[in-house]
Amino acid sequence: MPSTKGGATGSVIETFGLTKRYGRHLAVDRLDLTVPRGSVFGFLGPNGSGKTTTIRMLMGLIEPTSGRAKVLGRPMPFQARRVLPQVGALIEGPALYGFLSGRDNLLRYDSADPTADPRTRRARAEAALDRVGLTAAAAKKAKAYSLGMKQRLGLAAALLQPRALLVLDEPTNGLDPQGMREIRSLVRELASEGTTVFLSSHLLDEIEQVCTHAAVMTQGRLITQGPVAELAAGARGRLTVTTPDTGDAARVLKELGVADLVVTEDRVTGEPPGADLADVNAALVEAGVRVRGFGVERASLEDAFVALTGEGFDVAG
């Protein structure tokens, strides 16, 4: 029974030609996504690129126009009742009952899960509150929470049970830098416990810091997916020489076959040549160039993104 063994295929989320059309607008266009088990998977794209629509389809909230999706090896939305108890989700920000306390919000959501044991409900809610650092504010009404606190409470709701998969849509929205760091370390901690984390974000550096794998979407289409290291390697790093003698440096580098030279105030950059970089450095020094800094700047995911899309990282029209 391959359909019941998500572990056998090694992927936690799989979609096949997943498509969602609203009238004439294609929100998601033939998406083929594969999220490996145990990965921290970054789902990247500008606002409006179809990330949230995809997540809603994966969670059985909206029906695909065409295509199929499997979560934990089972078809969604048809087996939602089997799949979703093992999935914790934060979708498009938290939604809370303002007139209930933070703790009561968690109890409410937990009682909606027919697989959740009511005998351990309070203990699990307390543990989840503790995990996101909300224990002190647990008795406060949720309407008095700040955006960051609401975000934490939403995360706590996703952590009420041990999960095989966590789907976090923009989890650091509304958090201060300290909160962002805490969420990132929480994500790493969960991943180390074996939970697969599917993390959507429009913040490239966030993805780069925590994710092992990533996929990039623009305008409803998947542009690329794979291990973050490979994606970043796709865009080559640049050789950077910091020197007051930019003219001489550029001449020497050109002779050594460095292409695409760009000269700025005290810096010369270009595509790394085939030759050993030590020889390049020696050649510069021999030519009397005063080298203050020398090295290859690692390509960032942002470089990869720009290289892939040929455009900036703006809101899709």
Partner: peptide, 8 residues
């Protein structure tokens, strides 16, 4: 949406 993914 959270009640439905709970899943209620």
């Amino acid at each position: 949406r959270y009640l439905l993914v709970a899943p209620a």
